[in-house]
Every structure is written in C-alpha cells, then in structure tokens.
Design a protein around this nucleic acid. Structure first.
Lengths: 292, 292
DNA sequence: GTTCCGCATGAATCGATAG
DNA sequence: ACTATCGATTCATGCGGAA
C-alpha cells in the first residue's frame, strides 16, 4: 500500500482551499490558542478567536468526508481571572455552520505538576471536541479497547445463577446484565476520559500533545490507507503518528522552522527534498490490535 | 459555636426569595438535569433549560456574599446524537447576569454508567462550574492539599486526620490506618480534575453524588461557621456534609419524600421536629490544621 | 482482624416499534 | 412526520457475609 505524507508550508486559510471536497477521513488538530504564537497568525485576541476560526472550520467542513470526524484539541485561557468563553462560543458558531457537536472528550494530563496561584489550581485537562458532518460516521471502537479492571479476575471466575438473568423489574434504571457474555473477555471499551501524560522528553520543540493522543483518535476513526489532516501541524506530531500507522496524511504549517522540524521527523531520508509531496515506500501490513 | 441546619420544603424559585442578600459563602448544587425529574420541576426540556434556570441563578447571585463562590455540578445530555448546548448557553447567559465564570473543574466518574453504542463511549465525566461575584473570593487552598505520590489516582481519599475524628462515616473503616502513611509525606496542591466514584449504595435517592464531592468544595471555599446553600437539596448530601464539617447550611427541596429523607439523615435526633429550623448543639472547636 | 467473594446498582443511549 | 415507550447493551464500586 502506498502511503503518502503531504507537508504544506503556508497559511491554512489559503492552503486548505487546494484540498478536494469530501476527501479527508479524520482531522485532528490543536490550533494556536488565543494570544499565543502572536507572530504567525497575528496574535489572535480572545475576542476575535471565533471570527478568526470560522473560515477555517468552514473549509474543514468542506474537505471532510461525510463519514469523517473532526477532533479539535483546545482549552480556553484565563483572562482577567475568568475562563474566557471563546471555546464555547466556537462550538455554538460551528453548529450554525453545519457541524454536529457529537461529543466532548476530556484529556486528563496526568503528570501535570501542581502549581500555585492565589485563585486557582493547576489546569490538568483539555477539551477534545468531536465534530461530525452526519449522525453516522466511521468509528472503529475495537481498536481502542483496554484491559479490563482487576475486579474482573475474581468476578468472572464463577458465575452465579443471577448472573445469567437479571431481573429488569427495577423500574427505570435497571439493566439486564448478561455476565455470560463476558466469559473469555479481557478487554473493555474505554470512556470519554483519556488519561495521558504530557511528554517532557523532547527538548527540540515544545510538543503540544503526546503522540498517544492523535494515535488514539487515528485508531478510533480511521483505517489503514485513510486520510488524516492537521491544518496546524506544528512540529508534526499528528502527521508523524499517522504516517507510522500507515495512514495518508496532510499537514499544513505556517512557520518555516516548525515546518522543517516536521519535515525532518516525518521523513528523515528526504530532508533535502524540495518537493512538498513525499511518497513513502510500501510497508508491510499494520496490525492495529498490536501496539507499536 | 452554634451550627444551624435549615431545611426548607418547597420550590426554590419561591423559597430563595426569603433568604437575605449577601448571606451565603458557598452554593454547591446539582440541579435536575434536562428532561429528568419530570414530575417535580415540570420535566424541563433541553431547549427551555436556560430560561428555566436563569431566574434561579439571579436569586443565587443576590444571596451570595461578594467573597463567596457558586459551584454548579451539571452535564449536558445527548439529544439526537449530539451533545446538547444548554449547558454552555447557560454559562454565557449567567455571565450576562453578572456572574464571573472563574473555572471549570472536571469530575472524573471512575465508575461511569455502563453501556455500548455504535457511535460513542461511556460518559465518565461531569462539569463542576465555578462562578463568582468578584475576581477576589475566599479560597482556602491548604485545606485540600494532598500527599504527593499516587495523587493522580486516589485524589480525594486523602483527607486530613482531623476529618477522621469529625466524620463518623469515615472513622472505623480501616481508613485511619492509612492516614499514618501520609504523615511525613510531602503535601501538594491538587489540580482541577477530581477522581471520584459515584456512590451506588444509596437506594432511596437516585441521583446522589459522593459525599467527597461537596466535602472537597466546602473545605476549599468555606471555614467553620460559614454558610452553605443547596437549592436542590435532594436527599441532602451537601447539607449533611456541611453540617458535619460545622458549617451552617440551608437546603431547599421541592419533593416531600426527598425532603424527609434529608431531614432524617441530617438530624436523626429531631426526626419528628415540626420546625424546619434545626439548631444543633454547641461543638468543641475544630482545628483543621492539627492532626490528632 | 484480614481477605475474599457474591451481588445490586448507577444523571445512559440507541434503534426499533408503536401510537 | 413526529413523539412516546421498550429492549438491548455494559463496567466498576462498595457493602455485607463468609472463609
């Protein structure tokens, strides 16, 4: 299978227009937060954030396949002692644009060390907003299953008669369990809370998120050969992971230094390639069930 | 110190008006979520939720001290495959009312409701929205410090030793022995992610949050003798915890059966008291800082 | 006294079926 | 078409009794 990694240097507000309609399976990105990276995207003020992002999300809506998913990693800043409202305003505005706000995952940053401010604690979580074009979309839940909790060891050792049939007599909240279904089962489906540590080892660039984060969503929402897009590539974490997982990937980055960093890490053998289109070798089949 | 627990049977939309301006230090509540408890508050439709809540939050703004805090436990439902927007619309509307949206804590529900669906995973978190009247408010951060170590895992299990004495439900359960392990360990400030399991033992009331949840916020935002308010008391978890921690408390509940449940659990010795004003005995001084 | 084990239960959601 | 009801699915926790 030919896997392609297409790295584009430039402003995604323009470059996205070059992508075809309905061509992307998963968009995973972490855009510059308000007021940061002021030299690149013009130092977006929190008050102007929604207005700035909407033309971009409109393009993303266009290029995403109807069966595809857009995952937006974002967290609002504190401004004047308050959490700013630009993120929740963005959700409302994107729904007006036609996006469906399917779910909000929480990324719990496990190793964020407690700090101290007079009025608040250390911020240890970020939003992962899932948007879709349609109510039905591709989701490969089995790919992200996790080992069952310890309780299962003893729980499933012996099944009592009531394990087979549970009375649904409890009005409302009762649910009939079929513990027999769990025999031989070692894995369970995850929840919408992700516990991942932030990566601290890489000193060349400040990684916005750990590789496990895009990996989890790429597993969940794409298969080999699908297309992954990150319009704010940064140093290329999403694209690098996608490429390793044998997904086609498109990354857009406005800052040359980040672009080159991404280029180096994504295709070390082609560092000097003048082309932005990098064709990688065919790879052996990738077993999604086996962690890398 | 005289500690008061005032339980009010009725609709908080009316009963809140009887409370004095600027008299409450902490409001901690979990209002009926949209479409639930339909027989009491009229089964608020998600579309009408904000309109329904705003008169209540206006009263809460009036009764809260300028130095006080309002913590709102809430989570949006899924409607037609999407997360509904009434919660984030409520945040925007409450800011228009004059509230400051200071912070959003995450309650990670370790034992979330089971289930399997083709397009989503189990919902394992809820919002704890912190609102204030002013940028400066009372916050006693040292009261919720935790031992360093597995602080990411068993966050709220770690209470100060004095709590063991003051809180009968904790004492004598083998819990005190572990306290010894914490002594001498370094204490750190927590983050804005709380890891707690829902309590499944309570059969009388269907929608209880664990006692550790109000306890944590009561410690953080109040001192002994302060006033705690829960306008949607339910079976009285918040008020019961507040009373044990020697805070004055006011609870309002519309459903007689919940009200009586609360009354019984909050003041077992005065079950038959016709009065809604319960005056408890004077207690010896409580020193939260000093372990015994 | 511990440890182990059985078991009920919980702010759920989807798709199909019925009115 | 649009709303109401129903069955199916699923995992971790703490209590209480037993070993």
């Amino acid at each position: 299978m030919q896997i392609e990694a297409r790295l584009i240097l430039g402003d995604c507000r323009q470059k996205l227009k070059e992508l075809a309609d309905n061509s992307i399976d998963l968009i995973f990105t972490s855009p510059p937060y308000a007021d940061s990276r002021s030299q690149t995207y013009g130092g977006i003020k929190p008050e102007a954030y929604v207005e700035w992002f909407l033309p971009i999300s409109a393009e993303l809506l266009r290029v995403l396949k109807p069966s595809g998913t857009f995952v937006l990693n974002i967290k609002e800043k504190v401004v004047n002692g308050e959490r700013h409202t630009y993120v929740i305003e963005l959700i409302l505005a994107m729904r007006q644009q036609g996006w469906l706000w399917t779910e909000e995952f929480i990324w719990h940053k496990k190793n964020s060390y407690p700090g101290k401010w007079p009025n608040r604690f250390r911020d240890a979580w970020e939003r992962l907003l899932q948007f879709n074009k349609q109510r039905t979309f591709h989701m490969y839940q089995e790919e992200v299953m996790e080992p069952m909790g310890d309780w299962a060891e003893r729980r499933l050792k012996k099944l009592s008669p009531t394990d087979m049939v549970r009375d649904p007599s409890r009005a409302g909240s009762g649910f009939g369990k079929r513990v027999a279904n769990w025999l031989g089962r070692r894995m369970v489906y995850p929840t919408n809370v992700l516990h991942l540590a932030t990566e601290t080892k890489n000193r060349n660039h400040s990684a916005v998120f750990p590789e496990d984060l895009p990996r989890w969503f790429i597993r969940l929402f794409t298969r080999r050969g699908d297309w992954v897009l990150d319009p704010f590539m940064g140093s290329g974490t999403t694209i690098r992971v996608a490429q390793r997982m044998e997904r086609n990937a498109i990354g857009i980055e406005i800052l040359p230094q980040y672009f080159h960093l991404a280029q180096e890490s994504i295709c070390p053998l082609l560092q000097t390639a003048p082309q932005q289109m990098l064709l990688l070798e065919e790879r052996k089949p990738y077993d999604a069930a086996k962690p890398e």
